[in-house]
Amino acid sequence: MARLNINGKVIDVEVDGSTPLLWVLREQLGLTGTKYSCGTGICGACTVHINGEAVRACTIPVSTLDTAQAIVTIEGLSTDNSHPLQQAWKELDVPQCGYCQSGMIMTAAVLLKKKPNPSDSDIDNAVTNICRCGTFNRVRKGIHLAANINKRGRS
C-alpha cells in the first residue's frame, strides 16, 4: 500500500512496495503517458517530476515515496496542451513516433524552470533522453521556442 501525491491529488494505491513508480503510474493508475523503454534509468522515456526535479520513474521503488513528494506526470503538465513546450512542439511538429516525447517534454520542462533561457550547452547537459526517431534538432528548437513563448507571456 502506498499513498502518493500525483498531479495534485493524494491517491492510495494497493501495490507491492518494491514496484517501480513507472509501473504504478501505468498499471495501477492508468497514467500511460509515462513510457517504458529501458527500465534501467538510461533512456528517459519514463521521466516525471518529483518536487520539481526530472526523475526516471523506472528506477524508483514506490516504497520510497510518500505524499511529501509531489509527483507530476505528462498528464499533469497541462490539461489542454497549453504548456509553452507543448505549444512549441506543436508549432514545430517535433514528435515523430512520439514514444519518447513525454519524457523529452518533462525533461525540458524542468530545464526551463531552472533556466528560463537555456543555452545550447544547457540543453546538451539536461536532455540525455534517447530518441531513436531522431527528433533532436527539433527538440532543441522547441526548447528555445518555448523559452520565447514564456518570455512573451511574462512581458
Binding site: 501505468r26 492508468g30 497514467l31 500511460t32 503517458g33 509515462t34 513510457k35 517504458y36 506526470t73 505528462i74 498528464e75 503538465l77 497541462s78 496542451n81 507543448q86 512542439w89 506543436k90 511538429d93 517535433v94 514528435p95 512520439g98 514514444y99 516525447q101 513525454s102 517534454i105
Partner: peptide
C-alpha cells in the same frame, strides 16, 4: 503541412501498443 497526429503525442494521450487496456 503540419502533421495530423501531433496533439496526442504532447500530453500522453496517444495510445501505443504498450498502453492498451
Amino acid at each position: 503541412i503540419k502533421r495530423l497526429d501531433t496533439d496526442d503525442k504532447l500530453n500522453g494521450k496517444q495510445i501505443f501498443g504498450t498502453d492498451l487496456k
